[in-house]
Design a protein around this nucleic acid. Sequence first.
DNA 1: CTTTTGTCTTTTATCTACAATATACAGATT
DNA 2: AATCTGTATATTGTAGATAAAAGACAAAAG
Lengths: 293, 293
Amino acid sequence: MARQNTLFKEAYNRCLSDIEEQANLPSEPELGEKYGISRTTVRAILGRMRDNGLIVWDKRNKIVLRPPKDDDFFPDEETNSLNQIIERAFMKRILTGEASPGAQISEAEIARDVGAGTTSVREFLIRFSRFGLIEKRPNSHWVLKGFTLNFALELSEVREMFEVKSAAAFVTLPDDHPAWAELDAIEAEHHTLLGDIEKRFLDFSALDERFHLLVHRASGNRFVIDFHDVIAFIFHYHYQWNKTHARARNERALLEHLDYIAALRSRDCARIEAACRIHLASARETLIASVPH
Amino acid sequence: MARQNTLFKEAYNRCLSDIEEQANLPSEPELGEKYGISRTTVRAILGRMRDNGLIVWDKRNKIVLRPPKDDDFFPDEETNSLNQIIERAFMKRILTGEASPGAQISEAEIARDVGAGTTSVREFLIRFSRFGLIEKRPNSHWVLKGFTLNFALELSEVREMFEVKSAAAFVTLPDDHPAWAELDAIEAEHHTLLGDIEKRFLDFSALDERFHLLVHRASGNRFVIDFHDVIAFIFHYHYQWNKTHARARNERALLEHLDYIAALRSRDCARIEAACRIHLASARETLIASVPH
DNA sequence: CTTTTGTCTTTTATCTACAATATACAGATT
DNA sequence: AATCTGTATATTGTAGATAAAAGACAAAAG
């Protein structure tokens, strides 16, 4: 297999979800724009829809014949890109303690394990190395540094430096900057989540990332914003694998965020720094508590 | 060609430089240790030395027959790894303005240009992306963000945060920590260079990196230390490509370093931060001045 | 004259193959 | 008993091939 067509499958599914409402589909470039794909892929999608009797397609006419049934969709597993598959398999190894700090990591073994080519695994590891969890010995294996206490401390230290700086930069944004509107939206979402904390506490992770990304973006510094990816990635898996006291922790974080948001709106630098540090300190504790020992 | 043997060639050359002094070479594992290579490669080197009449090799006996001649060595070009070749070609493009900010970067084109496989170019670009100069559009090309004013400012901003923090951590190192001895050595080297500034001002680059790495290491933070690589890389090419006023600039930096070193030794935090900031501010100016416009 | 479509070319993502290099282990040597 | 060598095996680094996806351009349609 030279290349997977997960992009096609995933876009096909999205397209199917949308066609119920329309009788005639828009032009090819318009569809490409909407789904973030090229015309080549749009045409492949239209072609399959035609073949499966979902639409009639003749030049500019793309008339919907029937709503899609469940088995018109590609199964979810087939829409995961190879990279997602490798990433998940790899993170599972790290977080379940299957491989412990200091262990050697073999590209070849992972490739066999996942059923992917060595090139893809290799590229994944190169990209992954920026997270500071692995290190390469040239001409030889990778070494797992591991999700250790030191890792949590070093990550938190940089995070605090960057976020305090970003929060300070936030107040310099002009009143009509879209970040303020986004801040309002995020705040509203916090209230919703707090009101429904029993059922939706798992949605916190995504909201947390959205909020901190907004703050980091205010720095206007690519290195700071890139580092947010590292944090988001680590927390993403942290939330997935460690659910002890998740509810209480998330509730506390939501309340700290609300303080932090109020401080940002006040544009009072001292207050902002205080609220920011309080929240980051408790985030650090949470992370440290989740380090396996 | 499946894989280059630059490691072999480069180690062979180093080995040759060393054999003049010895009549009998050490054991295979010892040689491997010395040159940082595996026994397999050691044996390949010994085999070639035997075939070329440089030594007699029988089990534990590896007796030197004659000193190497110039043409026993592999030519320098053949010892450059593929990655170095790709890196240099790529940096040349960026710094000569052959490609300007916003331009598309094609893996295929670079591969053709350099005469390498697309895999190697791709891996290089992935590794290179952490420098913040390029960005990937998934399923499509890379975009050159370019060595712009903003890049210089953002890099300098993070550098200052990290280095001030690291310098502060330096004073907490115990008196017997090897960093202090290295600091002495670096200081001595500064005096040597200053005394011979007319001839050796080009050696400044390496010394500069060595000094700042020492400081960054004191942070004990892998993200800070990794970021030093980014700085070192950028400055390395900056020094190579922009030699206007190099002598005056380097002399000034050497003097600032000496102040900074004295401050570190005083363990006076306020003095350290002041010296550090003065030097970093002038380094930032230097970098900004070198941005093409 | 602007947008859309049909067609063709180029590039990316991925696998496989293979030489260079590393690693494992048993027998030989000190 | 420890270290070294000989040999066999496994892994990495790199090229090349190919399907999927992107991009280019001219003809067609509004």
